[in-house]
Amino acid sequence: MGIADDQRYRRVRRYRANGDPRGYVKVKNRRALEGLLAHRRGMLARLQAVVGIDASKSVQGVEDEIGIIEAGLEELKPPPGSLPENEWTGSH
């Protein structure tokens, strides 16, 4: 592993530890963003099913994160025609 690889590895680990979707965009990790999006959507569904307490602030926070993740995925989307359609859309 070279110096550049080592620096990238540290950067990815730092972003993973923080759970910051912008970090995955910065290191161009579409798979991680897709996994994070699925996780956040599951969290949102569970939060929306909560009764007995006011979960509205948590719901809003997760919705905000979903927006950031979706924007990140859009930013990483390849230009039209650069990949077969199923290469990009097959995992959504």
Score class of each variant (00 low, 15 high):
90 G>F: 01
30 R>K: 14
50 V>Q: 13
18 N>P: 00
60 Q>R: 11
10 R>P: 04
42 G>R: 12
74 E>M: 04
33 L>S: 09
38 A>C: 04
49 A>Y: 08
17 A>G: 13
53 I>P: 00
8 R>A: 13
15 Y>S: 11
5 D>S: 10
64 D>M: 02
9 Y>I: 10
83 L>D: 09
74 E>Q: 09
50 V>R: 14
49 A>M: 06
61 G>H: 01
52 G>H: 08
81 G>P: 07
29 N>S: 10
39 H>D: 09
85 E>K: 05
26 K>W: 05
25 V>G: 12
59 V>E: 04
86 N>R: 13
86 N>G: 02
32 A>C: 06
72 G>L: 03
48 Q>A: 06
39 H>P: 00
72 G>M: 05
32 A>H: 02
39 H>S: 14
79 P>H: 05
78 P>D: 01
69 I>H: 00
72 G>E: 01
92 H>K: 03
13 R>I: 01
45 A>I: 09
1 M>E: 07
57 K>A: 14
78 P>Q: 03
64 D>K: 11
39 H>E: 14
14 R>S: 13
74 E>C: 00
74 E>D: 09
87 E>W: 11
41 R>F: 05
40 R>C: 03
62 V>M: 02
67 G>R: 02
45 A>S: 14
70 E>K: 04
73 L>Q: 02
46 R>V: 06
64 D>P: 00
83 L>C: 06
48 Q>G: 08
15 Y>K: 04
44 L>G: 04
40 R>K: 15
86 N>T: 08
35 G>E: 15
47 L>R: 13
16 R>K: 13
52 G>Y: 07
89 T>H: 12
29 N>C: 02
2 G>E: 03
76 L>F: 10
51 V>I: 10
33 L>I: 09
91 S>R: 13
9 Y>N: 14
83 L>I: 12
90 G>I: 06
80 P>C: 06
23 G>M: 14
75 E>C: 01
28 K>A: 15
84 P>A: 13
19 G>L: 06
10 R>D: 11
65 E>C: 01
52 G>D: 05
63 E>D: 03
81 G>E: 10
64 D>Q: 04
19 G>R: 08
74 E>H: 05
18 N>M: 15
6 D>R: 10
39 H>C: 03
62 V>S: 00
1 M>S: 12
30 R>T: 15
